[in-house]
Simulated assay, not measured.
Amino acid sequence: AKGYLARAESLDVTDSAAINALAQALPALDILVCNAGIVTNTPAEHMTDEEWDNVININLTGIFKTCRGFARQMLDAGRGSIINIGSMSGQIVNVPQPQCHYNASKAGVHHLTKSLAVEWAQRHIRVNAVAPTYIETPLLKNLENQDHLVNQWLDMTPAKRMGQAHEIASIVQFLASDASSLITGSIITADAGYTCI
């Protein structure tokens, strides 16, 4: 309606060749948002190697591969803003659900964000991350024991509410824009106060 062109592409963020091929097929991006992620709830002592590897490969390695693949052209162009979706789980340990692989992957996303920001700062690429609380999405509705979990999360949240997708999108929009031109290597926590207590 506004005259913009949009296209959708399917991409496996664990496949470096596919990422590189798509990056080379597109003009240099001004904005990259890395948002792929999964989680399962399995106690550490019962977690299989495959379950650990799958979460780490998608949530952390996938972000690295995507940043690397698309940043090459950004670096050549001398401009760009990359926004990674981390989690408050990269700063705290969630309870009651057991998810050590997810927490570790998101802590890795935060440190990867800072590392890339430092490497690319002088080449005019900004790299930041958003660390959301629990967000009300369709995925949440499919959780086992959902009502009990949500009630416990709300008890631990000072604002006594969960987040909405548009609230995270507005932070991404800010980080993508020139309004945040001095910000790089930052992790913006959007958690209704959850990590304060």
Results as ranks from 00 to 15, higher is better:
residue 81 S to E: 02
residue 82 I to L: 00
residue 92 I to D: 00
residue 90 G to L: 15
residue 99 Q to V: 06
residue 76 D to Y: 09
residue 98 P to T: 01
residue 78 G to N: 01
residue 86 G to I: 04
residue 91 Q to T: 13
residue 106 K to C: 07
residue 90 G to W: 13
residue 74 M to P: 06
residue 113 T to W: 02
residue 85 I to L: 15
residue 101 H to M: 08
residue 75 L to Y: 01
residue 91 Q to L: 15
residue 78 G to Y: 04
residue 113 T to M: 05
residue 91 Q to C: 12
residue 105 S to R: 15
residue 76 D to K: 13
residue 102 Y to F: 12
residue 112 L to D: 07
residue 78 G to D: 03
residue 114 K to F: 00
residue 69 G to P: 03
residue 80 G to V: 01
residue 112 L to Y: 10
residue 94 N to D: 10
residue 71 A to F: 02
residue 117 A to N: 14
residue 90 G to R: 15
residue 77 A to K: 13
residue 87 S to P: 11
residue 80 G to N: 04
residue 99 Q to S: 06
residue 70 F to L: 10
residue 73 Q to H: 08
residue 89 S to Q: 04
residue 93 V to D: 00
residue 82 I to G: 02
residue 105 S to D: 08
residue 79 R to F: 04
residue 118 V to I: 13
residue 96 P to I: 06
residue 103 N to I: 12
residue 109 V to P: 06
residue 117 A to E: 14
residue 90 G to E: 14
residue 96 P to H: 10
residue 94 N to Y: 03
residue 108 G to F: 06
residue 114 K to V: 07
residue 75 L to H: 02
residue 95 V to G: 09
residue 101 H to W: 09
residue 99 Q to M: 11
residue 115 S to D: 12
residue 100 C to E: 07
residue 98 P to D: 03
residue 103 N to M: 14
residue 96 P to R: 10
residue 118 V to L: 13
residue 71 A to I: 00
residue 114 K to H: 08
residue 70 F to D: 09
residue 81 S to W: 03
residue 90 G to C: 15
residue 116 L to H: 09
residue 91 Q to K: 15
residue 92 I to R: 05
residue 110 H to G: 04
residue 76 D to Q: 14
residue 80 G to T: 03
residue 68 R to D: 03
residue 113 T to Q: 09
residue 85 I to K: 14
residue 116 L to R: 10
residue 102 Y to H: 11
residue 97 Q to T: 08
residue 79 R to N: 08
residue 95 V to K: 11
residue 76 D to R: 13
residue 108 G to Q: 07
residue 106 K to V: 07
residue 82 I to N: 03
residue 81 S to C: 07
residue 118 V to F: 04
residue 75 L to T: 01
residue 71 A to L: 01
residue 95 V to P: 03
residue 116 L to W: 13
residue 102 Y to T: 08
residue 117 A to I: 15
residue 69 G to A: 03
residue 79 R to H: 13
residue 114 K to Q: 15
residue 72 R to V: 06
residue 71 A to S: 11
residue 97 Q to H: 07
residue 111 H to M: 12
residue 112 L to G: 08
residue 75 L to S: 02
residue 93 V to C: 05
residue 70 F to P: 10
residue 81 S to N: 08
residue 100 C to K: 05
residue 108 G to P: 11
residue 87 S to Q: 00
residue 85 I to R: 13
residue 72 R to I: 04
residue 88 M to Y: 02
residue 95 V to Y: 09
residue 87 S to E: 01
residue 90 G to M: 15
residue 105 S to G: 12
residue 82 I to C: 02
residue 102 Y to N: 07
residue 84 N to V: 15
residue 91 Q to D: 13
residue 109 V to Y: 00
residue 93 V to L: 05
residue 118 V to Y: 04
residue 83 I to G: 02
residue 83 I to T: 13
residue 75 L to M: 00
residue 87 S to N: 03
residue 94 N to S: 11
residue 91 Q to H: 15
residue 106 K to G: 07
residue 116 L to D: 05
residue 81 S to T: 04
